[in-house]
Amino acid sequence: MNRIEKVFKKVKAGNKKAFIPYVMAGDPSLERTAEIVLMFEKCGADIVELGVPFTDPLADGPTIQRAAERALKAGVTLRKIMGFVKELRHRSQIPLLLMTYYNPIFKYGEESFVKDAVDAGVDGVIVPDLPPDEAEGLMTRAGKANFATVFLLAPTSTEDRMKKVAKASKGFIYYVSMTGITGSRLLLDNSLRESLSALRRITDKPVSIGFGVSNPEEAGSVSGLADGVIVGSAIVKKINESAEDLEEFVSELRRAIK
C-alpha cells in the first residue's frame, strides 16, 4: 500500500478527514518551502501537496500564478525539487504529492520522472492538464513503482467520466469543487452534494475536495462531504501577504477539517 493510501485508511478508521495543504516549491525559496512543510506537519497535516512552478499554469488562478513566477525567478525546476525532497526526507516523513503540469514531466521523461521521484521520496503526482485518456504511459510506470496518480473530476463530469477517473486514480480522487481555476469562490450547493453521492456509488476510493476552499469555515463544511480537503490559494496568499498569521491559520484549518 502506498503511503497516501495508508493515510486515508487511517483517517477513515478514526472517522476523521485528511487535511492536505498546498505550497508552491521555491516560493520564494526552497529553504522557506522546507520550513513551511515542517510547519504543516507540526500543525497536523496528513499529506502535503507540493507545487512545481510552470510558466503557463492553466488550471491556476492569479495567486498561484504569481507564486509560480516567484519560484521560477528563484531558479526552481522539477529537477531541483527532486533534490529538495531527498534532503527534506532526512527531516520529515509526511506523504508528499507533487502537483505539476505535464510538459515538465514530458521533457524530463516519464520513466526517469517516476524513478527519480520515488528515489527522492515523493509519494505521488497530480497532473491537472493530463486526463486519464492520455495518461496510460505515466500510469503504467507509476503502477509498477507503487507511486500514486491522482486525477481530477469536475462538476461537469458525466457518469462515464467519473468511472474513468475513479478507475485511473491511485491514492485518492481529486474532486474540483466548481468549474474554474484554483482560488475562485466556492459555492456549496445541492448539485455538489448530488454529484459527490453519484461518485460514491461508483467508487469506494477516497475523495478529496479542492479549488476554492478559502477559510476554516468552508473547510469545515466541505469536509463533511469528502475524505479529505485540499487548501491551496488561501495558504499561498497567507505565506506572501501575512506570514505572521500563517501557522495559526493552518492550525485553524486543521481543527475545522474533521
Binding site: 525546476t77 514530458f106 521533457k107
Partner: peptide, 20 residues
C-alpha cells in the same frame, strides 16, 4: 522541440526543464 502545451502535443519553444 517536442512538447505538450495548452492541451496539445506539438513543437514548442521551451527550456530544458519544459518551461515555455
Amino acid at each position: 522541440s517536442a512538447g505538450v502545451f495548452q492541451g496539445t502535443k506539438s513543437y514548442l519553444l521551451q527550456d530544458e526543464d519544459g518551461n515555455v
